[in-house]
Write a protein that binds this DNA or RNA. Structure first.
Length: 672
DNA sequence: GATCCTCGAGTTCT
DNA sequence: CTCGAGGATC
């Protein structure tokens, strides 16, 4: 059946009209027709498409209601990497940025394009000959996920470009987010349905974007704002960033209404303060503002450092603080028996999540901050992740507030607690007789960097130890599916998986085995050093303190912990039964020193395009290099991926050579 | 003996 | 990530 020409023409007209009204409504916030009129057009188009399926095109607005679930998302390699921005906290860091830019350009005052920094999810939209073809998440900056079907449901994203010369290729970069109003409505609905509420608009948007069923995404009313162009072919030459945004706006892409062009440092700070004041009233969440050198020729001259442009910076708002109340201070027992006080807080929403716990580190810390139970405290998410009690609000201390004192007996096993003269931590003296320490020892043994037993988590270890099924790590190798039956959350399948994972862990390396024993003061690095030096388990077990001190980086304290560990009959027995269980390990041989890497010290930061950080570390070690965690004068190379943190700034300060993944691979001789 | 650099250990929430 | 402390270096 062929499609009558007038039907095709009518469908085309309807699509254009509907998209125009979408734009008026969702982007400009100025509807020209009533909702009923809009619905009428929409239904007419749907009818036409139902009658003549040939008319149905992926760029039709009717497709915005979503399609049934597809497969899992396919990976998409970005045509041009989606880089991240360096962050500036505080005026001084912005000043430093502006100074670097001025010096590099030889100008007194630079013109900047400025805009709010949306707290959403970065996406890339690819238009081929004006038709929306591919939408992808940012992912690690190099590869993202294909979420085209979901993005198609976002009303403010044009499905087809019109109104000016359409380029052969246009990749629009922007942010998908959920406006505050939609977020509130969504949570109200979730509450009424008795379903879980979302913690913040960002998470709600992320959840919606990762729906396998785009019909669900369609109901979530996501918004989109564009801020740049990635790959392009056939676009006019822009002289300025602001012109490029005008061009996008002309194509009906939503662009931040708050965007502006300012001049010099004073202009930047004025803008920052202005947006800061408006922040609460904006319809969406933002976490700072972005400054970009407006002139493209200047941008090009400035270029990139590692993975971030030198011509732009994100000026972040300070970490959000909130007030809460210390309901109680509980004490946790760690692997080494260290007692750590943890504040149980009245749940408080800060920095995008609800915080209920915060570590107080030790007794001295509590005294220093003078924290009482019942106090009102200021809470912040330090480094944007770990909650921290900043200070006590002294005026609000209730009459009944009680000071904290470290218990004299272990809260888990009741043994004596002891605090050595020169140590900050109080410790339970029961050692492995304390169930808490026994559990932690087993968890450490099974952890990823140790024996890597997948599926053996805290809940399971709790049950296994509490029921007396296992006492030591060695007992794990005697478990079978029957022994696991009857435990909570342990059906046949998971039991079989666990037994299989335990079996797999028998093949390991000497370094991992030593590390997994959980000897005090022996972490991953020291375990490696020991493995390399002794080559086998036996000589390590019998080594005395003097022999141990001959190992590089092992001094009197570490030597003593090791000797003490193996002097303990219980530990020897565990090691013996581990061997009996059939653990086999590779001997370690000295790595063949490769020129360029051997003897050099590396620091890794950010997400690399292909390797994980662990893989990169492994390769460097294999080639005789060293990997440390902090940048210092002794660092030879910083390997930086996407989203580098503070280490990158430090490296720049110290003039440390910064490599990207390619550079590292070249150095390793794995790439021409 | 002082200083700098690393390592180890502990921690939150999704 | 951050703190505390062990080890190396001068």
């Amino acid at each position: 059946m062929s499609v009558p020409r007038d039907a095709a023409a009518r469908a085309e007209t309807l699509r254009r009209e509907i998209e125009r009204h979408n734009h008026q409504y969702h982007v400009l916030d100025r509807p020209l027709v009533t909702d009923a009129e809009y619905d009428g057009m929409f239904r007419e188009l749907q009818d036409l498409e139902a009658r003549y399926p040939e008319l149905l095109a992926p760029d039709s607005p009717t497709q915005r209601v979503g399609a049934p679930p597809g497969e899992a998302f396919a990976g998409v390699t970005h045509r041009a990497p989606m880089l991240s921005l360096n962050n500036a906290f505080g005026d001084d860091e912005v000043e430093a940025f502006d100074r670097r830019v001025r010096e590099a350009l030889g100008k007194d005052a630079v013109e900047y394009a400025v805009e709010p920094k949306f707290d959403g999810l970065a996406v890339s939209l690819v238009y081929e000959r004006g038709v929306f073809k591919l939408g992808a998440t940012r992912g690690d900056g190099y590869t993202g996920e294909d979420v085209t079907a979901n993005l198609r449901t976002v009303r403010s994203i044009p499905l087809k470009l019109a109104g000016q010369a359409v380029p052969a290729l246009l990749e629009v970069r922007g942010e998908v987010l959920m406006q505050k109003q939609e977020f509130d409505a969504l949570n109200r609905a979730q509450r009424e349905r008795g379903e879980k509420e979302f913690v913040n608009p960002r998470n709600a948007a992320a959840g919606a974007l990762r729906q396998l069923d785009s019909r669900v995404t369609a109901t979530r009313k996501l918004a989109f704002f564009s801020y740049g162009v990635g790959a392009a072919d056939g676009t006019p030459g822009f002289a300025r960033h602001s012109e490029m945004l005008d061009y996008l706006a002309e194509f009906r892409f939503p662009v931040a209404g708050e965007r502006a062009v300012v001049k010099g440092m004073a202009g930047l700070l004025d803008y920052y303060r202005g947006i800061g004041e408006k922040r609460q009233r904006l319809p969406y969440d933002i976490d700072g503002v972005v400054y970009k050198v407006n002139d493209f020729a200047a941008q090009e001259r400035l270029g990139f450092v590692a993975r971030a442009p030198r011509f732009a910076v994100a000026h972040k708002f300070p970490a959000e603080e909130a007030m809460s109340e210390v309901l109680a201070i509980e004490v946790q027992v760690g692997r080494t028996g260290a007692l750590t006080p943890v504040a149980r807080l009245k749940p408080v929403f800060v920095g995008g999540v609800t915080v209920t716990n915060a570590t107080l580190h030790n007794e001295d810390e509590i005294r220093r901050k003078d924290i009482h139970i019942g106090d009102t405290v200021v809470v912040r998410r330090a480094g944007d992740v770990i909650p921290e009690v900043v200070r006590v609000v002294a005026e609000k201390r209730p009459a009944g507030a009680r000071p904290f004192s470290m218990p004299e007996r272990c809260p888990v096993c009741g043994s004596k607690v002891e605090r050595l003269e020169d140590e900050a931590a109080a410790r339970c003296t029961a050692g492995l007789y304390c169930p808490a320490q026994r559990k932690q020892a087993i968890l450490h043994f099974a952890s990823r960097r140790a024996m890597d037993i997948e599926g053996l988590g805290e809940k399971l270890v709790d049950q296994l130890v509490d029921k007396g099924i296992i006492e030591t790590p060695a007992d794990l190798y005697r478990l079978d599916a029957e022994g696991l039956a009857g435990l909570e959350r342990m059906a046949e399948k998971s039991a079989a998986n666990l037994v299989e994972a335990i079996g797999r862990s028998k093949r390991t390396t000497l370094a991992r085995l030593i590390y997994s024993l959980g000897i005090r003061n022996v972490g991953e690095t020291t375990a490696r050093d020991l493995a390399l030096h002794f080559g086998d388990l036996e000589p390590l077990i019998v080594a005395d303190e003097d022999a141990l001190k001959r190992v590089p980086d092992v001094g009197p304290v570490v030597a003593k912990s090791i000797a003490q560990f193996f002097a303990e009959p219980h530990n020897r027995k565990v090691v013996e039964s581990l061997r009996g269980a059939g653990i086999v390990f590779e001997r370690v041989s000295k790595p063949p020193p490769k020129s360029g890497v051997a003897g050099k010290t590396f620091v890794l930061t950010g997400t690399l395009p292909h390797l994980t950080r662990d893989e990169a570390k492994e390769r460097i070690l294999q080639s005789g290099g060293k990997v440390t965690g902090t940048v210092s004068k002794k660092t030879d190379y910083l390997v930086a991926g996407a989203d580098p943190g503070s280490k990158h700034d430090k490296a720049r300060e110290l003039g440390v050579t910064v490599l990207d993944e390619d550079g590292l691979l070249q150095l390793l001789g794995e790439k021409a």
